[in-house]
Design a binder for these strands. Structure first.
Lengths: 156, 156
DNA sequence: ATTGAAATATGTTCGTA
DNA sequence: TACGAACATATTTCAAT
């Protein structure tokens, strides 16, 4: 990742295009073009510009993990006993597929992770056998998400 | 949201389709079809089935907030002084566009939120003027993400 | 930056196996 | 489920403004 990113100016039409595609990545460009009253070619060119600027980083299908039996989301604050071992600990955390996010944070912990597992038993197994066993991990604090009320990107 | 979701069985071809589209929602179905050696119509039919099952919930363009000047991500644990006021507090949190996630959690806090702001000053303004001022919020604990190492969906 | 038109590629439906 | 063919749309490029 770059150390610095150049910020970019976007106008109202760019915003409309982005809002449409952030909501549904497969919405046809021509449909957006008709809605905005400009040509498909214009949208196409603006999208190329937005991609070149680095603002658009890709697109994803979003799946509902519950349908696969993953119903328990949790946040775990991790205390590491030596700062030197942080990169190695993070490397091992990344290898756990249930770990979805991993942040170095200010505050009490060295690291905060978000993870998604099947149920509480699965969570406990991960904690005992995959996370607590990482060298340098001295202690963890677990917060189970009882109910996620919101999940969105930044508003444009 | 439904109280219960029926879990679903998916085969290896479904997984390949999903993996392709979770990585790039605009990848042409026909391209996936060629890669897997089956017809486009078959993929189309499988996608309809996966949508009907609720496993696919949509698709999104992913944008890089840094390009818009949003560089500071933080987690905030919120103590609420009366459980009765939780729904109203959550409602007000949702109205803050910088709040990306909001979870009821076990543990010390009533609520954990994830938010994205321009810089530390913006974060402080949000805390003082938008979050601490919500009725029922007694105390907050802020953890700034110094570096996000990982951001992904569940692996299929 | 935007347009329309042309060329290419994809999405979608349907009858059949 | 999967296929292929037929049809409808969308993407992409380009010369012109």
């Amino acid at each position: 990742m770059k150390i610095t990113d150049k910020t970019v100016e976007i106008d109202g039409i760019d915003k409309e295009i982005l809002r449409s595609l952030m909501e549904d990545a497969r919405k046809p460009i021509l449909e957006i073009a008709r809605k905005l009253g400009i040509s498909g070619a214009a949208i196409h060119q603006r999208l190329r510009k937005l991609e070149a600027s680095g603002l658009i980083t890709g697109s994803k299908f979003i799946i509902n993990p519950r349908i696969l039996g993953y119903t328990t989301m949790a946040f775990i604050g991790i205390y590491l006993d030596k700062a030197m071992r942080n990169p190695e600990a993070v490397k091992q955390l990344k290898e756990i597929p249930e770990v979805l996010e991993c942040h170095y944070t200010t505050g009490n912990w060295s690291i905060l992770i978000k993870l998604l597992c099947r149920d509480n038993e699965h969570l406990m197994t991960l904690l005992n056998h995959k996370i607590q066993t990482i060298e340098g991990v001295s202690r963890t604090e677990t917060f189970i998400s009882l109910n996620q009320q919101l999940d969105r990107q930044i508003s444009i």
